[in-house]
């Protein structure tokens, strides 16, 4: 799947790009361990649907 399509499908359901997160993390916080893909996925799922989440319209 091309990068654009993959990012678009993620964005449709509010799942940000893991590679972009990893690049950001390595560039800015190299001293801390980055989340694995699995941890990142769970973290973002919780953020979208957890407390205060559920950004859905009628």
């Amino acid at each position: 799947m091309s990068g654009f399509l993959r990012r678009l499908m993620g964005a449709l359901v509010g799942m940000p790009d893991y590679d972009a997160y990893l690049a950001h993390h390595l560039a800015h916080h190299p001293e801390r361990a980055a989340m694995t893909r699995k941890e990142f996925f769970r973290n973002r799922q919780e953020a979208r649907y957890g407390k205060g989440g559920g950004g859905k319209c009628c």
């Binding site: 990012r7 997160y21 953020a47």
Partner: peptide, 10 residues
């Protein structure tokens, strides 16, 4: 930017 909530997006 934090790669999580604040991400510059196409």
């Amino acid at each position: 930017p934090d790669g999580l909530d604040y991400v510059a997006t196409d």
